[in-house]
């Protein structure tokens, strides 16, 4: 298992450098946002899957984690049209 942890560590480090590098390229707003969120999403799922062993857990824990994520997305994407734009 030690090997996978070090591989994940490597990918996280590379992704961090990548996202900082991209921010210096001054993409347009939408591009910058999508890239930053994409990279953050990958890093988050890497940590959750391997470091928090979510990949090896039972369905109940997956259920709880994804429900929480689902309700955060509801909160965000139902307020955005009102105050956001």
């Amino acid at each position: 298992m030690k090997k996978t942890y070090l591989i994940v560590f490597g990918t996280l480090a590379v992704l961090t450098l990548l996202t900082v590098g991209v921010s210096y390229l001054h993409l347009n707003r939408a591009g910058a946002i999508t890239v930053a969120l994409l990279v953050a999403g990958i890093k988050v799922s890497l940590i959750a899957a391997f470091f928090m062993h979510l990949k090896f857990e039972k369905k109940v824990i997956h259920g709880i984690f994804y429900t929480a994520l689902f309700f955060v997305l509801i909160l965000l994407f139902l307020i955005l049209p009102d105050i956001g734009f």
Partner: peptide, 20 residues
Amino acid sequence: ASEVMLFGGFISSYVVLRTG
């Protein structure tokens, strides 16, 4: 999960106010 909701609430407020 409740912490996800707590930080989710904060980050949603930040994103919403930053865009709007």
